[in-house]
Design a protein around this nucleic acid. Structure first.
Lengths: 334, 334
DNA sequence: CTGTTAGCGCGTTCAT
DNA sequence: ATGAACGCGCTAACAG
């Protein structure tokens, strides 16, 4: 800007205004400035602009694993609305580790993002790092794996009802020994699955078999051990509700190794409805679609709205309606 | 900083120095400053610092799809070294679209990143947007899908030899009608696969059947059509080398729908070696591991090195050695 | 219409 | 050991 000002014999401010197409600027001046800017390949220094605007137009995203398709789809949603609103996306994976999540958050605030979107690490057991952010007045929105007891906006799928629906569907198929490979107790979604499950049983008067209920830490070993325990029960389950598709895959492999035939000796229903399941010869008979892309979009819309109007501090909660997706060949004709 | 300076009755400069543990500063002053900083929850404004340093400590990454595990693993590598060196990662997906890629690049330079890492969109047919970056003196490194005719550093897996090895392996299994579901001609890796394939055939004196060679645009429909064409040949192939695992999955499904039994009537070898293949009942008998995490790391190391020392403009090229990974049950005992 | 001045938050030389 | 002053690149309120 300085050089082009000199070259034209005007001030930097004039150039600045010309570049912004300020109304009260000499038409000729404006044209010449634009010309030279083009010619010199002038690119405005956003750091300087941001310093003035007190904004970075960055939004930070912390989530467990990008290798899980659920999250990579969610981030596509985030990315799409962020770009649309002139923001860029800063990314960090927590890998389900509390410490990494903390570091990610503090990196973001040091780095000066305008807002943060989080999907909790499964190992996160306290929320001090988030409270810090809140005290900083930095907008933060949770999605999918939302934090309890935190007054932030969030978007998630309430799995209670759809879980009841899923269990009910299994009942209608004549299956009543149903195990639940649930997640860690730190997640709200774990409660929802359990509640939905218990509701379904209660409404049919089926007694709860505690041995069928497992809380996993989402590690592979843990899943394998739990599935083995289920199969060694005197009355092993005939169906398994798995925390998500990846858990189902591991669990199904355990079954196969023990000589069970999937979708014959034992059935699976899982959460996420990821695309690769379609390629399995014997996929879960149903999966619960949680619309991650939409969740990402909503979460991004929330942060950006809060950034744009910090006054409106009211908590926004968006509950996505998940859908029980039964594979065509396993649908029950009404 | 201002408020804490006032409260202590000193200048902002003093505070600044105290915070940096400047040697020649009053020990008492330093302590008190740190104290107050802690208490007030002072966070240095990185935008201002960056403005001075003329750096943003952001590096931008453009790649086709995060939903492809290959790329999400690569970005983990990038992320790990970036964080280690104090950088943050800005993300954008091109979705294999040229226009989106262009926008991503220009967003990054507007946004003022310190360096860019790119894996090309399959539809990218010209490199003007990258030339612009080069003229700007902004470091840019390509990984995996590298650009031809561009003088930038890059890291990729040379697939020529390993492809020869793969074809040779099929020959040794007694299979000689081998199709190649290759990628778009814009990618260097497409050439490599072809060259490796042809070399293997030549060394055995096997004639080339042009009908077995297909160039895909990586869309699902296109893959399905190509696979159907192969199967309708008078002499359909007995093995298929697929551009990557996702292509293999689609192609395998076509086979299954036509009543073929995978790993009996027809065999697959593919590239990427993604984890979910392990869950298929009949996975490709071999896959070529390209070590995406390592590629990501190397790419990040390159950009950061160039950022730190812009003088050293010499082009760096790192060729990763891919590995033919044959599933245990299909290994040929030597 | 355009120049002057001030300031965003911080680092840094030059004095003292 | 600390203060004063300047500048990073750009915007904007205040003069003319």
């Amino acid at each position: 800007m300085k050089s082009i000002a000199q070259q034209l014999g005007v001030t930097v401010s004039t150039v600045s205004r010309a570049l912004q197409d300020h109304p009260r600027i000499g038409l000729r001046t404006r044209e010449r400035v634009h010309e030279l800017a083009e010619q010199w390949g002038y690119v405005p220094n956003s750091t300087a602009i941001n310093l003035k605007r007190k904004r970075t137009f960055n939004i930070g995203v912390v989530l467990p694993f990008l290798t899980e398709q659920f999250f990579s789809m969610a981030i596509s949603g985030i990315e799409d609305v962020a770009i649309g609103e002139g923001y860029s996306v800063l990314l960090m994976q927590s890998r389900n580790d509390y410490e990494r999540e903390r570091i990610a958050i503090s990196t973001f605030i040091k780095h000066g993002v305008d807002g943060i979107i989080v999907s909790l690490a499964s190992e996160t057991h306290n929320n001090d790092h988030f409270s810090t952010v809140n005290n900083h007045g930095l907008p933060i929105v949770f999605f999918d794996r939302v934090a309890r007891n935190l007054p932030n906006s969030c978007v998630y799928a309430d799995l209670t009802e759809v879980t009841t629906e899923a269990v009910d569907y299994l009942f209608r198929r004549g299956i009543d020994r149903i195990a639940l490979l649930n997640g860690p107790g730190t997640l709200q979604a774990t409660d929802e699955r359990l509640t939905g499950y218990l509701t379904a049983l209660a409404s049919r008067g089926v007694p709860v078999n505690q041995a069928y209920l497992k809380n996993l830490d989402l590690s592979r070993d843990n899943t394998i051990r739990a599935m083995n325990e289920l199969l060694e029960l005197p009355e092993p389950p005939r169906a398994v509700l798995a925390f998500h598709d990846y858990i189902a895959l591991d669990a199904m492999q355990v079954c196969r190794e023990r000589g069970l035939v999937i979708n014959q000796d034992i059935f699976f229903v899982s959460y996420s409805n990821l695309s690769f399941c379609a390629y399995l010869e014997q996929p879960p008979i149903a999966s619960i679609e949680q619309f991650p892309y939409e969740m990402g979009r909503k979460a991004a819309e929330f942060v950006i709205a809060t950034i744009s109007d910090p006054a409106a501090t009211e908590r926004q909660i968006n509950v996505i309606r998940p859908a029980l997706t039964i594979r065509p060949e396993w649908r029950i004709d009404q």
